[in-house]
């Protein structure tokens, strides 16, 4: 299982041909207290880079984009009643949705954990 990162601060973790997607630790920290998340419907086809979900902190709403093209096969229902899970465990229990990928090789275009760390340094 490898985890890849986008410049929009999403992570995607591939397990077989299904990938789990969420927002990064950096993103949750920057957003602050998360109070609402709007998840995609199961069965929806997402395009790489297209709007997939919305995450709302106390202050603002932010779009979450699909890191790769695929079909939504699961969403994290537990976030409905406990969106704060994203703050507590953004890259674990705070996952957003699962995608059955059309082209897993799209992940090769994304950053590794090391590359993402370097990328974050350029934002400081």
């Amino acid at each position: 299982m490898t985890t890849r990162y986008t410049k929009d601060h999403e992570w995607i973790r591939l397990d077989g041909d299904v990938a789990t997607v969420g927002i990064t630790e950096h993103a949750q920290n920057a957003l602050g207290d998360i109070v609402y998340v709007e998840l995609p419907e199961i069965g929806r086809a997402l395009e790489k880079g297209g709007e997939a979900a919305v995450v709302e902190s106390v202050k603002a709403a932010s779009d979450v984009y699909a890191p790769a093209t695929g079909e939504v096969v699961a969403v994290n229902q537990s976030l409905d009643g406990a969106p704060g899970t994203i703050n507590e465990d953004a890259e674990g229990k705070g996952w957003f949705f699962r995608l059955k990928l059309n082209a897993p090789e799209q992940l090769n275009d994304l950053m590794s954990g090391e590359q993402y760390k370097e990328f974050l340094k350029t934002l400081e």
Binding site: D8, I23, A27, A30, L31, K59, A61, D63, V64, Y65
Partner: peptide, 24 residues
């Protein structure tokens, strides 16, 4: 400060510009 968001904002430029900056 307040939330200046009539549109949703990209998650991308997180810490020191939008959403934070325009959010306040």
């Amino acid at each position: 400060d307040t939330v200046e968001t009539t549109d949703t904002q990209a998650l991308a430029p997180a810490p020191s510009h939008p959403p934070e900056a325009s959010a306040v």
